[in-house]
Every structure is written in C-alpha cells, then in structure tokens.
Design a protein around this nucleic acid. Structure first.
Lengths: 212, 212
DNA sequence: TGTTTGTTTGACCAAATGGTCAGGAACACG
DNA sequence: CGTGTTCCTGACCATTTGGTCAAACAAACA
C-alpha cells in the first residue's frame, strides 16, 4: 500500500539517534554555506562535505536543496524574532527598548550566520519566504508598535515614529553581523572586536533618542 | 603582429557609437540583474536578454561575467562614496552630517540597485572587491573621522565614536534600499513611500545624537 | 566598388550541478 | 541467526551555464 521510498518522514520529529545527529549536522553545515554563499551560490555537494556526508546521503534526509533552505529559515525565524517578543509592555520603556537593542546586538555577535542568511534572503526580495514576512513578522511588529505608541502617549519616551524606531534597531544591530568585513576593514587592526564599542555607541544613541 | 581577436580594448574609453551604446545597455542590464539576483544567481543569458543582445554578442564586449561585475563595482564605487567626500570640514558640523545623512538616504531611494549590489558583495565577504575596501574606503573614512574628531574636540558636536557614527549612517540609510521588501511589508499599504517619514526620523535621531 | 575593420550570431563544448537509482552495508529485533 | 528496516554509496542522468568559434553581416573608408 505504502509504495513511497522516501524514508525520513517529518524532519520536525526525527526518529533514530543517527537521524537526529545527521539532521543537526546537515542543518548546521547548511547554515554555514547558505549564509556565506547565498542560496544560489551554495552547492549541495559543499553542504554535504561540510556535514561529513556524501551528496546522495544528504539527499536522503532532505529531498531537495530548497527543502534544506526552507527548514533552516522556518526554524531560525522563531529564534530570530524572539528578542522582540520579550519586549514587555509592563516594564520600564527605556530599559525595555535598550534591552531589545542589547539582545539584538548580542545576536549579531553570537549568530552572524543567522543574520546573514536572512539578509541574503530579504535582499533578493524574499523569494523563499513566501508570505512569512506578512503573516509572522508584520503582526508581531504591529503588536509591539502599539506598545510603543502607548509609551509615547503616556509621555514615558520621546515622540518617535514607532515603525522606524524598530527599523533603526534592526539596521543598526544587524549591520555588525551582515557587513562584518566592512566594519573590520574600516576599523583596522586596532580594536579587533567592534562589539563592545558598538554597544556603548548604540546605548548612548537610543538613550538620547528616547529620553523625553 | 597584433594577433588578438578581442576587439573592444579598454571599456573606459569606447570607440564607436555602437560600442558606447551597447556598453551602456550592458552595464545597465547587469546592474539590474546582479542587484536582484546576486553574482551567482545572475546568468549571462539573462543579462544579455535584458540588454537586448545575444549572449555571444555580450561576451564580445565583456570577456567574462566577472569582468562585467568588476566593471560595475569599480564604476559605482566612486558614485557611492561621493556623498562622504563632500563632507566639508569648514561647514557647520551638524548641518554637514545631517546633509550627509540626507544624501545617503536619497541615494537609497534613487539608486537602490547600486546599494544592493554592494550589500550583496559585502555580505559575502567581498570576494570580488579584492582590497578595495582597504585601499579606497578605509582611507576616505579615516580622513573624515579626523574631521569629526576635530569637531568633537572643539565641542561643536557631542562626543560620539566617529567610526560608529559613520557605520550608523550607512546602516540606517541603506537599510531602506537593501531591505525594501521588509520595510514595505511591515509598514503595509498605508504610506506606500517610506522615505519621507524615514527622513524625518533620521534627521530627528541624528540631531538629538549630535547636539552637545 | 572593393577591402578592411568592427559587429553579430547559430552551433557547439566542457564543466558544474541538482537530483535519481539500484543495490550494498549496518542496525534492530524476533 | 534471520529478517525487515534504516542508512549509505557509486554510478549515472538531464539541465544549466559560462564560454568558444567559424562564419555571416554591417560599416567605414579608400
């Protein structure tokens, strides 16, 4: 009755130990390659090699290159948006926003590959994102924008355009992951790690911006 | 004596009318395709078609795909850095920097393809840029950083880390070109053009940041 | 007009690449 | 040990793609 040959059913819940291990290895290798070469620039062979598998073996776990990419994007999106979710309407406005800035900047330092994979994707118009931006990102942002509007109305932070405030947090923090080469080249050898200085700069910037 | 067959010598100074016309058409088409698909994602055929030429005919003008890309990058870099060059040490500090922000933002609106082509390139570590960042970009930035340091020392603007100030101008302005899809999706239908609002936001931001 | 020089193309090629498949090895388990 | 399931591989295929080439065509010009 069941005539299909594709073995690993749903990637979300791997069965055996081997499957779990290889799944993880593949996704990690894929993250490496996709983030540094982009979707088109990445080859299945390279990902397989990075994962320590043969190409057919990789294709045994993920039917296509796109499936891998998609699995990555959807898995990472949650992680990626998490800092914004934790923005607490009950907290102190300035601290909350500064906390968000710090978390995002930390993610740029700790997870630059994740940042770049999204940058690559969005840069090219999000051909693999489908309507994810509209159905996942936008509602979340809309929700938090309302929170910020409330803070502004209560006079607890300065009047700023809430959407552009969020855009500015994204761009300022992700810049250090996405354009890492440029940042390091311009800064030169002095101060090999740009992040401590960046944090000081961004905290000062947003403090001045938000203080009424 | 001259046994080579490649006809168009130096692209920088085209001879005939036809050559000039096709050169322009090719570079424009290449800008279109490279900026929307990335280097690897772009195909010579697609560029040729966009330029209204056959593939072999395109290859008659540019020997390789890389040559096209390189010609584009080096041509555009000057344009791209021009706003920074015009930062005038003699001018009023805040106005000069705000002027720079406005010019960069305008470039994001008027030349998003150029912004994206650089973003794509830098994102992947600048494999086609060679040492351009170190030899062209860095010296210019270093020079302007000195100007900013002078302004700070004179107490004419607030104390900010000059390098990160420049990074923040880049990221905040280019964000609207590079992540256009995201910006428009999040903003939704209301306010189809994000730029006027963006300008107001950025001017306010940098004014607050720089005013001592 | 004839000849030289510049422009264009159809046909073609080699390499890279995403993906398939039949069967072999390893493992689980009765 | 035997048997069914899971895991893995070498060989192979079709398509895409960057690039070549000989020859046709057009322009310039003597």
């Amino acid at each position: 009755m069941n005539s299909e040959k594709s073995p690993p059913r749903i990637p979300s819940e791997p069965r055996t130990r081997i499957q779990r291990r290889n799944h993880k290895a593949i996704l990690d290798a894929a993250l490496d390659v996709f983030s540094s070469k982009g979707f088109r620039g990445a080859t299945v062979d390279e990902i397989a090699q990075a994962a320590g598998l043969s190409k057919p073996n990789l294709l045994y776990y993920f039917p296509t290159k796109e499936a891998m990419h998609l699995a990555l994007l959807s898995t990472l999106l949650d992680v990626w948006l998490d800092p914004l979710r934790t923005l607490d309407p009950q907290g102190d406005p300035v601290s909350e926003i500064l906390g968000y800035v710090r978390r995002k900047l930390e993610m740029s330092r700790e997870m630059p590959r994740e940042s770049r994979i999204f940058a690559n994707e969005v840069l090219q118009g999000g051909p693999h994102l489908g309507d994810t931006l509209g159905t996942v990102l936008k509602p979340l942002v809309d929700e938090k924008v309302e929170v910020i509007r409330g803070w502004i109305a209560a006079g607890r932070i300065a009047e700023v355009h809430p959407y552009h405030l969020i855009f500015s947090i994204w761009s300022l923090t992700q810049h250090y992951a996405d354009f890492d080469v440029q940042v390091r080249t311009v800064l030169g050898d002095e101060g090999a790690d740009p992040f401590p200085e960046a944090e000081r700069y961004l905290v000062a910037l947003f403090t001045k911006l938000l203080t009424p």
